[in-house]
């Protein structure tokens, strides 16, 4: 029997994988994917808390968070397109004209 706590653990692990991936990867599309992982980990945590407590607010929150994640990805991808058109690269290490 899978308990709500186990779902919570999966959510936390997803979030942690997202954070680690964001900090170690270089390709900016992969960075956006890592952010998606973080948001989905948080979503899973919300749903499992809902299950534990039998309240609905968390589920509503997840629906909104999914929309926000989609919007972020839409804007993010269009900015990536802009970057690619300007420089033809997706490597985060090459975004270095602004530094001191």
């Amino acid at each position: 029997m899978i308990t709500a706590n186990q779902y919570l653990m999966v959510g936390a692990i997803l979030f942690a994988i997202g954070v680690l991936g964001f900090l170690t990867r270089r390709n900016i599309i992969v960075l956006l994917m890592c952010i998606e992982l973080m948001i989905n980990g948080a979503g899973l945590a919300f749903v499992s808390f809902c299950r534990q407590m039998g309240s609905l607010e968390g589920q509503v929150f997840v629906l909104f968070a999914m929309v926000i994640a989609a919007v972020e990805i839409a804007v993010g991808l269009s900015i990536i397109l802009l970057v690619f058109r300007n420089r033809a690269t997706l490597d985060a290490d090459e975004m270095e004209s602004l530094k001191w």
Partner: peptide, 27 residues
């Protein structure tokens, strides 16, 4: 463009933390 990509990546990363924090407070 470079500023925008840096801003959206760090900003969205921060929103991820905020969302998980809200989930824990709710929990």
């Amino acid at each position: 463009s470079e500023a925008a990509i840096k801003y959206i990546l760090t900003g969205a990363f921060a929103s991820g933390f905020l969302l998980f924090g809200i989930a824990l407070v709710y929990g």
